[in-house]
């Protein structure tokens, strides 16, 4: 009734009427909340946020990489910075060798390699003679007593591991007491 009434009020006077009467509509009922309008974001801000996220992740990766398993450095393989700095200072300034000495050295190295080659040829001959000698002995044993031959063919595992002392310049001293000195352990500890 009221809305009908308001319809006949010219629009210029509609605001003068009491509020209630003015707001009575005859539109259809809605049983749900209207969709909320999405807030529009500033694209620049969005981009910045995304970049911040990426940077954070990157930092995490870097941190992980930094504290990942590190290879143990080999000190002997790395020339210390101090030595690298002094490298030029440590060069020997020697006079050039006289040409006859240079050629003599070259000749002698050639002679040496030839002599060594002859030496190794002789050595292989000696070793094959040793093997031949042993094989002949084993054949002999096989003929004489097959049972003993079988025993001789058994591998001797007690020889492994085999330990040999290297030859030295001078023989070991008898009753030599090595001085028991103090020492400080300088080996660096590395976390596994």
């Amino acid at each position: 009734m009221l809305s009908l009434f308001s319809r006949y009020v010219p629009s210029c006077y509609r605001n003068l009427l009491p509020n209630g009467a003015c707001n009575i509509h005859t539109s259809s009922q809605l049983w749900a909340e209207p969709m909320r309008k999405r807030r529009r974001m500033d694209p620049a801000l969005l981009k910045m946020r995304e970049q911040r996220k990426i940077r954070k992740l990157e930092k995490g990766i870097r941190q992980l990489k930094k504290h990942a398993k590190k290879m143990k450095p080999i000190d002997e393989m790395e020339v210390s910075p101090k030595l690298q700095r002094e490298l030029a200072d440590r060069k020997r300034q020697l006079p050039d060798l006289p040409p006859n000495i240079v050629s003599f050295r070259q000749d002698l190295i050639r002679v040496w390699s030839r002599v060594q080659s002859a030496y190794y040829k002789d050595e292989t001959k000696i070793i094959s003679a040793m093997l031949h000698c042993q094989n002949a002995a084993l054949e002999d044993l096989k003929e004489a007593d097959p049972g003993l031959y079988d025993a001789a063919m058994q591998p001797d595992l007690s020889l492994i591991p085999f330990k040999i002392d290297a030859v030295t310049e001078t023989p070991p001293l008898k009753n030599y007491q090595p001085p028991d000195g103090k020492y400080t352990e300088t080996t660096k500890k590395w976390r596994p």
Binding site: C133, A136, A137, L141, A152, M153
Partner: peptide, 11 residues
């Protein structure tokens, strides 16, 4: 001493 193996070296 250590005997070097079960096989004879010469006969």
């Amino acid at each position: 001493y250590v005997t070097l193996g079960n096989a004879p070296c010469a006969a």
